[in-house]
Design a protein around this nucleic acid. Sequence first.
DNA 1: CTTCCACCTGTTGGATCCAATCTCAAGGTC
DNA 2: GACCTTGAGATTGGATCCAACAGGTGGAAG
Lengths: 238, 238
Amino acid sequence: MTATLVTPAASERIATHLREAILSGEIGPGERIRQEEVAERLGTSRLPVREALRMLEAEGLTEHTANKGARVPALDRHELDVLYQMRERLEPLALTESIPHLTSGQVRELEGLADLIAADTDLSEFLVLDRAFHLGSYAGCGTEHLLATVTRMWNSTQPYRRMFMTLGGPDRRWIVDHEHRLILDAIKRQDSVDAERFLSGHIRRTRIELDQHPELFGGPHRAGRARISGTTTTRRQA
Amino acid sequence: MTATLVTPAASERIATHLREAILSGEIGPGERIRQEEVAERLGTSRLPVREALRMLEAEGLTEHTANKGARVPALDRHELDVLYQMRERLEPLALTESIPHLTSGQVRELEGLADLIAADTDLSEFLVLDRAFHLGSYAGCGTEHLLATVTRMWNSTQPYRRMFMTLGGPDRRWIVDHEHRLILDAIKRQDSVDAERFLSGHIRRTRIELDQHPELFGGPHRAGRARISGTTTTRRQA
DNA sequence: CTTCCACCTGTTGGATCCAATCTCAAGGTC
DNA sequence: GACCTTGAGATTGGATCCAACAGGTGGAAG
């Protein structure tokens, strides 16, 4: 029982690094991720990078083609729409499973997040907080499969949520805040029927809004190469 | 342009082999899969086995713990129940997405499968045909994510479906056949509303029946070691 | 000028060896 | 006798080297 917890195994460190790079938008949809580049930047061999990419694939953050390597999945308009329909059907179930097991401390945390979302002005921070609010509301859900599936769907949609936010249309986050309050209130009342209704409405509204912006899919489909944030290691050899 | 298609890359061959071993029940829930054993039996090094196990993890067929290796996930009663609730909500969506794009040939295939299921007497074969019928009905669904998610849920529940079938209660497959006909008929009429209703009812009935057999979860949770069927190949060089 | 083919380079896939970790049983101590 | 400790064996994680495949480039023929 020594350092297992402080030395998280290289492949997991790499997975964590890449996960953040993808979720933060540093690596965008369609961009390729080359093993050697990541390995060099993080100071390991390519092998743990391969493992990390497979882990991320299981999380829906990368996709893999034989002999061609990994890239961040790019969705077309219809696929994103269906992904939102999946969320519309599954996340209410996760919420219903979660509500009875949420501690009062967790509910207070959710309220804090809702307040931050209402107050916040930074669009990038909004994405983080909104994700934390929703996934946090599923924290009581004890079943691995459901949580993993919901998380995968959030992972897959994240790049497009980001692109949508940066479109710079009218700021309608007050609607988001209103819907969050409804959901939160239902959670407090332990009313899972209401909670499901408000949540699916929340997701459906977002889906419809996204669907009105086909320009999200024209742009960055072309295969660029990913720049990994230079963490460690200053380097570049030869 | 040589043999890319006939030489499917070792890791994929291994993944295919293990996938079949798990789905066929040869490796049961909770059983451990050791890299070296698989590597030896299939005549490769451990590396492609590691890759294969990661692929299977993405498909919901194995789970991985650092420094402890892979095993076939074992579900408890509640988790299996929730998995069926997920199927109840998601598979109707897959069917609705699929119906408009099914060719008449595909519909005929479904009808053939339904006939086989009604005629068949071998319980093990039933599992294969039933899976083929349902996943086949989603074949027109063009979206990768939805199909992959549905397949993952089928993969995860498969071992328990098998255990349930071998319990040897009264044979109620005539109910299954009846429900399949209702679904098939709705598909032919392109009536996705009816199709969704019949399908979710079909899954719900199964879920409730499964829930009445808690003895499914006492048994094989203990960690045995998997026996890999020595398959292929006469070969293996050196 | 266009098209097709061979070659070459960049990148991923696999094998072998070594290091780190876990499991578990034997032995010692209180 | 019960419990903790300490090893040895078994098993997974990582590094390095080599092989195989994909894509692009240049040249030659039409």
